[in-house]
């Protein structure tokens, strides 16, 4: 018989509120080490400077705008945006789910009145949003210093940021699917590494897809990775939000497709928990 005076959980809005509160707390905890976070962005400064030199050198032999459809300042601003997306992930794994499973911290998280994936999602999203905007601020500063301003369309920028936030949600779902494999395999680092590298190379992190050879471009356009990196970054430097709705639709489908294995693996994985001993 169930105890008559049990407290009951709130509905979906209560759950959403919990996720947002967790995100806010993670965001706050990121400020504890804001100095370290800024130091991390030095890589961004370096890579933007190097690429400016490379594009300038290339431009002497071939017209960059003609080859890529983007001016050199646009390419640098594009790179600042793609790097902000990639570097905002917390390490190669992008989440601490693997760590929680391996160390047994999962046990504590499971005993809270919020489903573990929701807790982790809130926590990872807070970190990622903080890092993204910090990287973007630094990236814009460096871009202004090395190539000067480019004309930005407020609507396109808004579309780029909105799509990026949606991408973070979908990327988290895919990363979570990989992480829950740690219920069965010792270390998922290799799979995470492969996923991140595919995002970088086939997603158009260093160059927009227009700069790729035709055959590679057509391959990349058919793969999901470009929707996670290239499309939001392209929107950022364009003067109008072309292709925004199409990209949102594809990213949503990617999210739904990723959600099925993520939840299935998680439910199966919970039965595998073997937290023997202390």
């Amino acid at each position: 018989m169930t105890s008559p005076d049990l407290k009951e959980l709130g509905g979906p809005f209560a759950l959403l509120k919990k996720v947002l509160v967790i995100s806010r707390a993670t965001l706050a905890s990121q400020f504890a080490y804001v100095g370290e976070q800024v130091v991390r962005t030095t890589f961004l400064v370096l890579i933007l400077y190097i690429f400016t030199q490379l594009w300038n050198a290339t431009d002497r032999f071939q017209d960059v705008r003609e080859a890529t459809g983007f001016s050199i300042p646009q390419l640098i601003w594009y790179l600042a945006f793609t790097e902000s997306i990639i570097m905002s992930a917390a390490g190669i794994r992008g989440t601490s789910v693997d760590h929680d499973v391996r160390t047994g911290d999962l046990a504590y998280r499971l005993t809270k009145p919020i489903p573990y994936p929701c807790f982790q999602f809130g926590s990872d999203l807070g970190t990622r949003v903080f890092r993204f905007f910090l990287n973007l601020a630094v990236g814009i500063g460096v871009s202004l210093a090395v190539v000067g301003p480019i004309p930005l369309a407020p609507l396109a920028v808004l579309a780029a940021i909105s799509l990026t936030l949606l991408v973070f949600v979908v990327d988290w779902i895919w990363v979570f699917s990989i992480s829950v494999l740690s219920f069965w395999i010792e270390d998922t680092f290799g799979i995470h590494l492969l996923y991140r590298r595919l995002l970088m190379l086939l997603g158009g992190m260093l160059l927009p897809l227009e700069a790729y050879p035709d055959w590679l471009r057509s391959v990349c356009e058919r793969l999901p990775f470009a929707y996670m990196v290239y499309h939001p970054s392209r929107l950022f430097v364009l003067d109008r939000p072309d292709g925004f709705l199409h990209a949102v639709g594809v990213v949503l489908i990617l999210g739904i497709v990723g959600l099925i294995p993520a939840l299935l693996l998680y439910r199966l994985g919970l039965r595998q928990v073997s937290a023997q001993g202390g």
Partner: peptide, 28 residues
Amino acid sequence: ERTRLSLNIATVFGQRSQLWFHLPAGET
């Protein structure tokens, strides 16, 4: 019914922490 149960019980593991490491305890 773990999530429903967790609203009515509490667990403290001596070797683990539920407090957020970088935040003051009050914020947790």
